[in-house]
Amino acid sequence: MNDPRFTHVGPLVVACLRITDLRPEVDPLTGAVARDAQGNGLSAADAAALELSLRIAGVWSGRVVALAVGPPAIDPVLRDVAALGVTVLRVSPETVDPDRGYAAELADDEQRLARTIVASLVPYGPPDLIVCGDRSTDRGTGALPAFLAHQLGAVQALGLVALTPDDTVTGGGRALIAERRLDAGWRERLGVPLPAVCSVEGAGVRLRRASLGGALTAAAAPVPVNGISPADRPEREEAIPAVRIGPTRVFEPRARVLPAPESTDPRVRLLALTGALVAHDPPTVIGPVGPSEAADELMAFLVRHGYLDPTDPEQAGTSGKGTGR
């Protein structure tokens, strides 16, 4: 076979994109959402996913396949992606579910969507890395990367701000180093083995521009639509039950019944109801202190208010262990 799709050279990096109208118009009265194909584009997160895919594949001398589920209206955006020298693939939503059009792409059944995507990638060989944006602009749940990882038996690292090849790995192996935000400006650094599914934030990188030659070539080229036959179309798999969302309602906590104040004097009743003259401990601000001091303060507070008995040997034992929790 001369089809370049099937000659797998080097690792395969897949950028899994969600192309949609970035500025849909919402009718303020009815809430109806009007999508315009001309607003179609890559979200910042998807652009970052594509750029990181290109960079990683560049270091690894690998290939990039960019994939998106959607109608033919997203082809112009995929053509712009193809101009970067990327193999593109559009998965038709009918493949996911022929009976339901647009909704089937969405949160509705992302497990099934993930299986369709994995099945569509079969002709390209097993992916070593799938990079997604960490959120879609049109109400996705953000669960697709996890489902993809499950389908592929790959590890997952989600919501990343940086993703680079791990150049300390030797002996022909490959791995990635990922960074994720923590509070207070801290980052956690993760070692990610392959195969992996990663989702990245739309921050820190800008998608490169295609060369003139690439853009000219792509402008005239058709966008391939996935060719998996209906027989290969994944059916609903009952063995792994999908999460179903039942009818929802507003959370209404049950009212707590308090005994009525006993006095007949309205002023006393009012005071009793509001607790105006009852002494309260003012809130105490402790710190900043280290974890162990904070734990000791908490324990002392509980002892002071009679929740803990320091003489009870069993309870006293937990006080020592509890520091790290």
Binding site: L54, A57, G58, L84, R208, S211, G213, G214, L216
Partner: peptide
């Protein structure tokens, strides 16, 4: 192909 773009390829720009 280190940079997967077609910048260096003898494309239609010539």
């Amino acid at each position: 192909m280190a940079e997967p773009t077609m910048a260096d390829a003898p494309g239609p720009e010539s």
